[in-house]
Write a protein that binds this DNA or RNA. Sequence first.
RNA 1: GGAGAGGUGGGUGAGUGGCUGAAACCAACAGUUUGCUAAACUGUCGUACUCGAAAGGGUACCGGGGGUUCGAAUCCCCCCUUCUCCGCCA
Length: 423
Amino acid sequence: MLVLNEILKNRDAVVKALAKKHFKADEIVDKIISLDQVRRNTKQQLDDTLFESNRLAKEIGGLYKQGKKAEADALKEKTAELKDLSKTLNDKFEETQSKINSLIVEMPNTPCDLVPEGKTADDNVIVKMEGEIPALPEDALPHWELAKKYNIIDFELGNKVTGAGFPFYRGLGARLQRSLITYFLNTAIDNGFTEYQPPLVVNEASGFGTGQLPDKEGQMYHCNLDNLYLIPTAEVPITNIFRDVILKEEELPVKNVAYSGCFRREAGSYGKDVRGLNRLHQFDKVEIVEISNQEDSYHILDTMVAHVESLVKGLGLPYRILRLCGGDISFTSALTYDFEVFSAAQKRWLEVSSVSNFESFQANRLKLRYKTSDGKTKLCHTLNGSALALPRIVAALLENNQTPEGIKIPAVLVPFMGCDIIK
RNA sequence: GGAGAGGUGGGUGAGUGGCUGAAACCAACAGUUUGCUAAACUGUCGUACUCGAAAGGGUACCGGGGGUUCGAAUCCCCCCUUCUCCGCCA
């Protein structure tokens, strides 16, 4: 969520910035400004009332000690009034506060200046495109056919045991998953990230901390009995490590990486987009999360993009990097780069990574702060990115690397695969 | 799952109704002293909101949420969590 004081201080700038996200903010901001006046006034009155109550309580205590019971009892009546008054004021204060809160929560993050204007994915800016798109023969197979042909991924078995969107990986298919995870993790560790193995279920507070709750409740699997949620991404547990934390500036940047299964209900998805590995209810992903001070976050975003790029490059997949436009960027992000790889048999670009700087939007909700050397407490900036999500990488690898002899394994994976071709 | 004991500031830990936003010690930071290091001494040393130009006030917070009371870290209720013992178990 945006920072209240920033909204108040920079009203016009905020409204202007949000217009890029096609969000009309002027009315909502003005409502916030006037509610904030009420909030401050009420707070002042409330504090004054409580001050008086506290003063009287002390006086009463003193009188009792001196044995002046009658005088003390007289004062008690006064405090009863103050108590009513403070209750009323407190209710008003909390009500106003929560009104302000629910208005702020509706507001998306302000996009940074680099975010291009635009409405849809078509307006995203391609900042880089590399790698050769393989020329496959006419009878090239899409990955779901290849998966069947080589018996490495079994979608029907997943249907039987669990349901659609929960495939089994078998033999070299399973080993390919494990190899990719190892390759991604090892590269991240080489680049200075600390590896975590997080819990795969989280409590409600964590769901709120990273913003999945209350809005996207329907997107997460929920264990009713214990009121826990299956994580949609490792971002949730890894970022919530820092909920209500104040770091020292010299501890920054924090660089964490985690592999996890990810669980998404994907309510409302359908059609060709969800064929095969394109969209699953359970999939594997390695996620990088960084926490930075306010000055360095955009530089760090660049290093994260470079890290993800090295992964895709290493696999030899044709890729492009997009800077998302105002209409396509997520609610919480200030700047996002998407990575897409070309899946040559489906003949389409598949999104495999999304790397974002959230500035202080997430940190404000998390109450994640750092202390500067001169003792000031500031909100951190948080960033994260997939590095990488497996299914679409696997889809592209299978399709692009298919040959009459079998599916060629990229060199970086061979040591983990123990072979260089799936036959 | 059953029984018992706990949860206080960066750490240890005192505090069973008012004089406690919280002793003491340690750590940290600044200064003084000192050939250097160390030691000693002095001071500072939680977070948020709010009033104020500032100096400086005020309010809230002792795991979380409710309650009793003029007054709660302290009493009551619910929840979370840690430890010990028992049970179960990869």
